[in-house]
Design a protein around this nucleic acid. Structure first.
Length: 254
DNA sequence: ATGGTTGGCCTCCAA
């Protein structure tokens, strides 16, 4: 199974690029975030025309997640207590694995209400996780908005006390790992394999990026992981089909 | 170069 997560920053704008990606990369499962569309305006035919099954959890203007799979989706549900009215979580079962597609809050500044919301979101995720079976095949993926390690940010100094690389987030990340999840892509990526580069300041061209899009998997999934990669070239696109500020990230599981 | 870009119910907010 080739599984890809991608924050597309508006499916309305990125639709044609997503179509190109489906045709060239052909993921078995694609989890996308930041649709920025209400459910009724999501162009599901992009996926269904190519034989994908689709689950959509949209929201006007902001957020929104979508999961597409070549095999049927079962046990589809959307939303959990930590969303607090925002569309940031959906879960499906496909290929015998439960997949959770997340768009975690970004957090703004450490002293902002948004950072408090981010911490509540992760606490709710941990509460949800405690009710799951660590022995079952489970993948939590998406824009997690946490850079877990020093080599996951372009400058540790620049992120001192800054959300996405903050001790209080690292504590929650560790709690996810302690429950039984593993950062599955990391061993398959080179150092400084970023997945996000800010649009501002020419960050991509200076490689001032962060690794914040992840696959957190249980042991039964981890044993089947064969490869992982960041599709950097899809962050380079300019001209007619412009890039998102995130690159697609891929994990292949046997 | 003290730097500046996207996108959306859009002249401000969010990332």
């Amino acid at each position: 199974m080739k599984l890809v997560t991608w924050n597309v920053n508006s499916l309305n704008v990125r639709g044609p690029l997503v179509e190109q990606f489906l045709d060239e990369v052909s993921p078995d499962v694609l989890c996308i975030q930041e649709l920025k569309l209400p459910t009724e305006r999501v162009p599901q035919e992009i996926f269904t025309r190519r034989g994908y099954h689709v689950a959509v959890h949209g929201q006007p203007r902001w957020n929104g997640v979508l999961t597409a799979s070549k095999t049927p989706l079962e046990d589809v549900s959307a939303g959990f207590p930590g969303e607090e009215g925002q569309s940031r979580m959906q879960t499906v079962r496909t290929n015998g694995v439960q997949i959770v597609n997340l768009y975690c809050p970004q957090g703004s500044a450490a002293d902002s209400p948004k950072f408090a919301y981010k911490k509540r979101f992760f606490d709710a995720l941990l509460t949800w996780l405690e009710a799951q079976d660590p022995a079952a095949p489970l993948i939590i993926t998406g824009d997690i908005n946490i850079a877990p390690n020093p080599d996951d940010v372009w400058s540790v100094e620049a992120f001192d006390n800054v959300p996405t690389y903050h001790p209080e987030e690292h504590a929650r990340w560790k709690a996810l790992l302690d429950w039984g999840l593993t950062d599955a892509a990391r061993p398959h990526l080179p150092d400084n394999a970023y997945t996000f580069w800010d649009y501002r300041g020419g960050s991509f061209w200076k490689n001032k990026g962060m690794r914040i899009d992840h696959f957190l998997v249980t042991a039964s999934v981890l044993s089947g992981v064969v490869s992982g990669q960041v599709h950097r070239s899809w962050r380079k696109k300019r001209g007619e089909l412009k890039a998102s500020d995130h690159a697609p990230v891929e994990l292949v599981i046997s």
